[in-house]
Design a protein around this nucleic acid. Sequence first.
DNA 1: CTAGATGTTAAGGT
DNA 2: CACCTTAACATCTA
Length: 269
Amino acid sequence: MPELPEVEMYRRFLAKHGLGRRLESLSIGDRRPLRGTPASAFRPLVGRRFVATRRHGKYLFAEASGAGWLLFHFGMTGDLQRFDEDSEPRGSALVASLKFTDGNGIAFLDPRKFGRFGLVDDPDAFVRRRGLGADALDLSRPRFESLLRRRRGTVKALLLNQRVIAGVGNLYADEILFQAGLHPQASVASLDARRMAGLFTAMKRVLRTAIDRGGDTRRLPRSYLLRHRDDDGRCPRCRAVLTKVRVAGRTSSYCPRHQRKPRNRPTLS
DNA sequence: CTAGATGTTAAGGT
DNA sequence: CACCTTAACATCTA
């Protein structure tokens, strides 16, 4: 379920179990997440030590000293798992397995293969080429507001658009809108200064809280929409039955009482 | 058996 | 150009 909070947990996992370790071997399983990169491209990493990790939105990078950065994207079902000498993972979900000289290892698994595994020279250059927006947790309020002022469309589509803000996915977008009291189909142009500020603080609060809770939506506070979306299906504040609509091609869940759609602001003519 | 699922991207339409 | 929806990707689960 990898949105920004989960990917941040993977970053910490990789930092804890990979940093400072030297790669003894790197083997590739299913090649689809490599998107055409030949498996031999990873050869130069062998013998190198991991020295840094970075995250931008839903992308994770790990620097192998002098040999560039490994890139991970988790798609819908990507996962990192640790293994030791006699538990090296195999099977069709395996994308890559990194074995360290101390006998430990980390495997990148992705049953659905929507993820990505690659090698880049420079994460910043990759982010620029991709056209990714600022990381949701890095974005300042003035920057956020100026971004919104020149956007149209629905507020849900805006949150999901990785070229505008990187890291928010379908589930956390719903939570952010719930806490900001905004209808997913509200138009960005309808937001006044107060609602814009509320959206910004809700975004930061939700993402930070999710990270504090280990990136696990089941451990979020009971007052959060996500604890109820697939559970009792009722608003934690008023018990109203949550409504589902399709916005930006994704299922959105919201409380019809707390998230009303503001009328478009009158434009000067 | 079918529908739908947390992500990204291409393609076509407004 | 900005935005919308749909479909596709591959697999699992309700």
